[in-house]
Design a protein around this nucleic acid. Structure first.
Lengths: 241, 241
DNA sequence: CGACTGATTGACTGCCCTCAAATAGGGTGG
DNA sequence: CCACCCTATTTGAGGGCAGTCAATCAGTCG
């Protein structure tokens, strides 16, 4: 969809897609951004690649440029606890900048072809020393993650499977949805959606069918088209009186 | 239990309980800690006092010195989503140090008499400018919160009411438990415990009774005595195959 | 046209929440 | 010291949401 930047070994001029934005850069001045970008290394990623693994020593900070990723934690029994989508502009490996010998808190796996910008440990150290506001940028990103997590916890604790599903459709639409002519298109299988909403595949299928019958979405294999976003928002909010 | 520090209007010498430790101070040098403490203001708190409210402008950073607090978020319908205990050494209002016009993410309510150290917005700004490592300290604390939240989300998503209860008893024991002669004593009503484990009061009562029959805890009104901590840890881990 | 993977549907089960009502602890005032 | 009250806790009955299991159906790709 967007001309993907080419691989570059050394970062003299990192190519970013036009209109690229990242919350990580907010709060940084233009020259700071420039300096930070100059220290970055760009890499291509392929689907099902483990970008970082929980428990591993945090040796690099990185930022998703194009593609999609999934952040999750492995629970006892091998189940994956979905935490959030990684979309262009999202930053991970933030632990690298925290206390020096840190470990990744979560596992991040790419879901598509794409590209990332990465900073290794020495670069991070140097950058933080030179630009203290970087620390604030990290803070800001982490705060966003916190907020999202609290929301997810609330959903998981107080809401029904139907509400959790509707919520996930809603937030996924904003994050990984493409606006097509029939509505917002989501490249998600039932299984993926079920996992993100912490619901069984069967209830996911049932609820989706119900919503299709109501005409507020359309299902295809591995793809969901939402006709009306606001209805899903309503579903998640209503019902708790 | 510990001689509580007296109220001081100006912070010339802030009185901390002997042996007081805070993760917030880790990563700071001794002179830094001294400077930070010098800028603090000490206040007494009483039970059921709202130390901060979600959505309010974040105007102060503070640290619990003595007492106990509850961090939660208010959900639609007025239900409280319990997030974590606040115990001596815990820091809150970290948003104050992030992007300048910030708002509190969560509500924190005191549960006992106690004392806090507080820094107002100008102090925070000044301190962060002078000691960049403060930013790292904040980062570190937030990372801990993140980790705890992910854990809670996992519990809420994948575990049974019994496992969530056992988990909460276990973590509460470490955080707010006193070691008595019969085991670890927890000052918790069934209702409080139920709320923190995201379980109904009734299932809480039933499970507690069951565990009392098994002899691994003893119930009193508003108080629980755990005879064996490790058993509870086992309960939370077992069962997932 | 197979083969494989994703999606569906129905039947069954069980955890845990809701509601109603009774019981007990602990402090207070007479 | 006892009667009383308020609140915490208990107990049982009932029901619903949603998960598991099994089997079938449907799309896609080779």
């Amino acid at each position: 969809m967007i001309d993907t930047p080419r691989l570059m070994k050394k970062a003299s001029g990192v190519a970013l897609p036009p209109g690229f934005r990242s919350t990580f850069f907010e709060g940084l001045t233009a020259p700071e951004i420039k300096a930070v970008l100059a220290a970055a290394r760009q890499e291509r990623i392929s689907p099902h690649q483990l970008l970082q693994q929980e428990g591993d020593p945090a040796t690099r900070l990185w930022l998703l440029v194009t593609g999609r990723a999934t952040a999750y934690r492995l629970e006892r029994g091998g189940r994956k606890l979905f935490l959030r989508w990684g979309v262009p502009g999202d930053t991970f490996g933030l632990a690298t900048i925290l206390r020096e010998p840190a470990r990744y808190l979560v596992t991040v796996e790419s879901a598509q072809e794409g590209a990332i910008l990465a900073w290794d440990l020495p670069s991070c150290r140097a950058l933080v020393l030179q630009y203290p506001s970087l620390c604030k940028a990290v803070n800001s990103v982490v705060a966003n993650y916190l907020d999202g997590l609290i929301d997810a916890l609330g959903a998981s604790s107080f809401r029904t499977a139907e509400q959790r599903l509707a919520r996930m459709l809603f937030v996924s639409a904003r994050q990984i949805g493409r606006t097509g002519r029939e509505g917002v298109e989501l490249d998600l299988t039932n299984e993926e959606l079920a996992m993100t909403a912490h619901v069984s595949v069967f209830t996911a299928s049932r609820k989706l069918s119900k919503w299709q019958d109501l005409g507020i979405l359309k299902k295809h294999r591995g793809k969901i088209v939402l006709r009306s976003l606001s209805l899903f928002e309503a579903i998640t909010n209503v019902t708790w009186r």
